[in-house]
Design a protein around this nucleic acid. Structure first.
Length: 300
DNA sequence: ACCCAGGGTTGCA
DNA sequence: TGCAACCATGGG
């Protein structure tokens, strides 16, 4: 990978195993919009993360040498402090993909076709609230609630001539009433969000509490929040706390794993443990490919 | 007028 | 421990 500045933009070339569309639209992230300047040859998105807004474009014309990414109005410092980590760009996906294919040949085609999916490293508090919102909702609705909450409690960010809003931190969110949160269309999840904010601010689930504890203990700690069960906790672990062995099992992952391996109705906890035995530290990555597999083969 | 959405809690056996 | 009703809201 090569990095240089072009005017106000940071440009990355020879980026391997990276696809912006696959990465954003696989259900791990809700704080982005596709920009209408996307074309057949390039995809352009605005992502809001870590208090910043980023317009990023992937040019798909140069596949042999890896892709080209343009981060608009972004200097190298911002790239290195925020986006390199966010996009998981220092992780070698070749090894990961080879390891998964070795144990699961049936995923080979899917991994080759979607070889650019990356696991993002998102902000912990935002991820926690977002996946509390996600329960029993579809992705467009989740995105709408995230946007509503940001507009109500976040900070204004001026980005390329437009005004957008950051996802509020815990102190900003704490200023809202449960009724305010309901107005954002959070529905019955509003008290769950209140509970998460309360526990975050009293320190019991802040980031530091997760340092040096096992993933099982981390999962249990997250599940002390009302409205956080196994699935939501695993999403938070996987997408924001760097626990790449976490394996969220939702209704679809249950169907997919039953279809591929169990051939019968199987408890979600059993599926999660099987995935950890089969994929180990790469279980979370495998989950992304499995989901695409299911989307292509089982969902209609 | 239904039914379901990448769930979780509560209540009741 | 297991199961199913219920939870707001929007879209098919």
């Amino acid at each position: 990978m090569k990095i240089y500045m072009d005017g106000n933009d940071t440009v990355l070339t020879h980026v391997e195993d990276f696809n912006l569309k696959e990465t954003l639209e696989c259900g791990q992230c809700f704080n982005f919009v596709r920009k209408d300047i996307s074309t057949d040859n390039s995809f352009c998105y605005r992502i809001i993360a870590h208090g910043n807004a980023l317009i990023v474009e992937q040019d798909n014309r140069s596949k042999e040498d890896g892709c080209i990414l343009r981060l608009y109005n972004t200097d190298i410092h911002e790239y290195e402090t925020i986006w390199e980590h966010y996009f998981d760009l220092y992780t070698d996906y070749k090894t990961i993909k080879e390891s998964i294919i070795k144990g699961s040949g049936e995923l080979q085609d899917i991994i080759k076709e979607n070889s650019g999916i990356r696991l993002l490293n998102q902000e912990y508090f935002e991820t926690l609230i977002s996946f509390i919102i996600s329960q029993n909702k579809q992705i467009p609705q989740i995105k709408a609630v995230v946007k509503n909450i940001s507009q109500m409690a976040g900070k204004v960010i001026k980005d390329n001539g437009e005004e957008v809003y950051s996802f509020p931190d815990a102190l900003e969110l704490a200023k809202l009433s449960e009724e305010n949160i309901r107005e954002c269309k959070a529905g019955f999840r509003a008290p769950y969000i209140m509970d998460a904010v309360r526990l975050y601010l009293d320190g019991s689930i802040k980031e530091d509490e997760f340092i040096g504890i096992s993933t099982d203990d981390a999962r249990k700690l997250l599940m002390t929040v009302k409205g956080v069960g196994e699935k939501v906790a695993n999403c938070v672990l996987l997408y924001s706390l760097g626990r790449r062995e976490a394996f969220p099992v939702d209704v679809w992952m249950k169907r997919i794993m039953e279809h591929l391996y169990f051939k019968k109705d199987t408890d979600k906890k059993v599926i999660e443990e099987y995935a950890y035995e089969k994929y180990g530290e790469y279980a979370g990555y495998a989950q992304q490919y499995l989901f695409i597999y299911g989307k292509n083969n089982l969902m209609k």
